[in-house]
Amino acid sequence: MATIQSKITNGHKYWYIVESRRVNGKPRPVVLEYLGKADDLLKRLQGLRDSLKLKSYSHGLVAKLLQVASELDICNVLNGFVHSSKEYTAEKPIRNNMTAGASLMLVAIGRACVVTSKNGWAQWARTTSLEYLLRTNFSKVDSQHFWDAMDAFPVEAIESAERQLLENTLRHYNIKMDSLFYDTTNFYTYINTTNSRCHIAKRGKNKQKRMDLRKIGLALVVTKDDMIPLFHHSYEGNMNDAKVFRKVIEKIKNRLEAIGADTKSHTIVFDRGINSKKNIELVESLGMKYVGALTPFHHKSLVEEASTRLEETVVNGKTIMAYRTFTNIWGRDMTVVVTISDKLKEGQIRGIHTFLASCDAAISKINRMLSNPNSKKTESRGT
């Protein structure tokens, strides 16, 4: 709680707004605002109406995220695994009056609110009520602050910390886990070619078309309704999706069992990039239920069969065209649903119109060239 206190300097009394805070575990008076002499303060108050300035701060989202972080005990969980290997730092270092766990939590809150770099985090934070809510100052928080916090958190502890946080989440919230979505993505980086410390950044095809840069892959398993991540795996950027799936599917099952989930009552859903005979056999050998996707090109007869048998079906209040059958896929009888994606259909139609428009433009250009025998292009072709 803030109080107004005075201090006499050179025979003059000056007033301050002071608050007691803990600094390195000890209570210390912290000056929040210098008010000056009584006469100066009176003049400021009298002229307040003319000189009043207002500034707004983003509050709701950061306040709610801090509340959730407190409920899940994120700081204490992370700090329980912090162990700095640097000789010149404490085992559990504190930087800018913040523990490593608190720093990691805050950078996660920042990423949940807005996409910003670690170096730009403090600038963003000062547009919110975080400094007020945490009773601290972020003026010295830079990218090095977060790098030091990350460096103090052992890589081998990530899985255990993730599992503990997930267990806390399931205790506090009713998370439905009957349907789980698995997917992969990748991110290009600016890690130098000569950097041999990072082993998973590899060159390969990526969605951003930056094949000249080293990239890192990320596999995620999330719940259907709330998109709560239950499992993650970072992997080499040049690994294909099917190979990654074979590497992690057993780990996914182990994670589900570790948090008390019955894998026989859960269904894991993955796209056609994962689907293969070997992967299906592996999932079935683990006793897991699954939903995959097939490539229409490899099942033309099934598509032709469905084209005349599509029926209107209501799914989540939306009417779609679908065909359901039971057929043999890769030597095993499976239920197959063929449906038309309106979004994909619209995109394909737009692509066709775009292609036709480019063809019309090319034909018009040729006609203009042919109609003008004096043009340079026409002469160069001997027309």
Rank of each mutant, 00 (worst) to 15 (best):
I191T: 09
S276M: 04
K253S: 14
P296T: 05
R255P: 05
D212A: 13
L218R: 13
F245C: 06
E304I: 01
E304S: 09
E305G: 10
A201K: 03
E250W: 09
I252Y: 04
V291L: 14
K300Q: 15
H299P: 05
F245Y: 15
P296D: 11
D271M: 07
T267L: 01
R246P: 05
N206W: 01
A242M: 13
I259A: 03
K289I: 02
V291D: 09
V283I: 11
K278W: 12
K207N: 09
S196R: 03
M211W: 08
A306W: 03
R203A: 07
H299R: 12
Y190A: 05
R255A: 03
R203G: 00
V269D: 02
K300E: 10
M211R: 10
L218Q: 03
K277V: 06
Y182T: 05
L218C: 06
H233D: 10
C198Y: 15
V283F: 01
D241W: 00
K207P: 12
I249L: 02
N192I: 05
S301H: 08
T193K: 10
K224L: 10
V248L: 03
G273T: 03
F181D: 04
M211F: 15
K215Y: 07
I274C: 06
Y235R: 00
I280G: 14
I249F: 03
G287Q: 13
